Simulated scan of single mutants.
Amino acid sequence: MTMAAELLPQTVASIKPLEILCAEKPAFVCAPMVRYSKLAFRNLVRIYGCDIAFSPMIMSDSFVKSQKARDSEFTTNAADKPLIVQFAANNAADFACAAELVAKWCQGVDLNCGCPQRWAQQEGIGACLINKPQLVFDVVRQTRNRIADTDFTVSVKIRVHKDIRETVELCRRAEAAGVSFISVHGRTITQRREPVDREAIAAVAAAVRVPVIANGDVRTLQDALSTAESTGAKGVMAAQGLLNNPALFSGAEFTPLSCVRDWLRLATDTGTPFTCTHHHLIYMLERQLPRSLRRTFNVLPSHAAVLEFLRDQLGLDV
């Protein structure tokens, strides 16, 4: 695992996600996104109003067994807090061991119960766990018993069932196990682009005492605020909306050029590979560029070519 030298455990412990989630205003959260919600991007969205950020989903079994996996999958620095590290697991032991490995360097861990991909369900991870309430209970309970710090959070991120009563029962069992908060994506396992079911999220929020984070269809600050109001959620999580506009939570309608400049600086500082840096810029500039220029930008082959394009087409001096 790669941590900045100045990131001390006691410094990390001073940031408490539950205090943020219990504040008067809704907490703004960056969702776990495979390939995308890595260190530099988490640093970026924090500049623009994001209160809590999740890591991408990490496979707990390989993380526990392999130092190489730990070094490649988890990096952080002094600015990267509060941080929730999300793990995929099909057993409680792997998840609890993985949680112990990162506990000094983050503020909580999260169990992925929402990934709908077929490969994930074949591995017994992701969204199939919403139909395994005893396993979710065991994961939360074992991890909660393993880590003594009561400020350290153990959470779950779920999708909803067709019958919301099943979702409510799952969440109540997780609460009984000691879960700190629950993130609810308001779609079922089979749904992709259908409108998010805010009523389902509201039903969960009303049924449990722990904070609930609402996830889905958050593309603007107004979306975030209306989602919180209509669901009773203590936090609102965005994924695609933040990819397209990392300044979403600040109220910007689309990615400001200052955000593009900050991204290039942070990507360089953290050693982000060109491919990842470029992919993020493709998302960020979608509304800044006409289609013809997007075609050109999207196939640029190098960092130098990107900088030249930004200078010539957008007047961005970087």
Rank of each mutant, 00 (worst) to 15 (best):
R159K: 07
D163P: 11
D151A: 15
T150S: 15
R144Q: 12
P116T: 04
D138V: 06
V109H: 09
D138H: 00
F137G: 00
G126F: 10
F152G: 07
R144M: 10
K157R: 14
S155I: 06
V136Y: 02
T150D: 14
R146Q: 14
V160C: 10
A148E: 11
V140Y: 01
V154T: 08
N131D: 13
A127I: 00
R141D: 05
L129F: 01
I130M: 13
V136P: 01
D151F: 04
V140E: 01
G126E: 09
V109N: 08
Q142V: 05
L129T: 04
I125N: 02
T143V: 12
K132T: 09
R118N: 11
N112F: 10
F137Y: 15
T167M: 09
G114R: 00
R144Y: 02
R159L: 03
R165K: 15
F137V: 06
H161L: 03
R165E: 14
D149K: 07
G114A: 11
K162S: 14
E166S: 13
I164L: 13
D138E: 13
K162C: 12
V156Q: 10
L129S: 00
S155Y: 10
D149G: 08
A120R: 04
L129W: 03
S155H: 11
P133V: 05
L135R: 13
Q117E: 11
N145S: 08
P116I: 01
R144P: 06
D110K: 09
V140L: 13
N112D: 09
K157N: 08
C115T: 09
R144H: 10
Q122H: 00
A148H: 14
D110E: 10
R165V: 05
V136R: 03
A148M: 04
G124C: 12
D151P: 07
I164T: 12
G124Q: 04
G126I: 07
Q117F: 05
L135S: 09
E166I: 05
P116H: 01
N131Y: 13
D149Y: 00
C115P: 11
P116G: 02
Q122W: 02
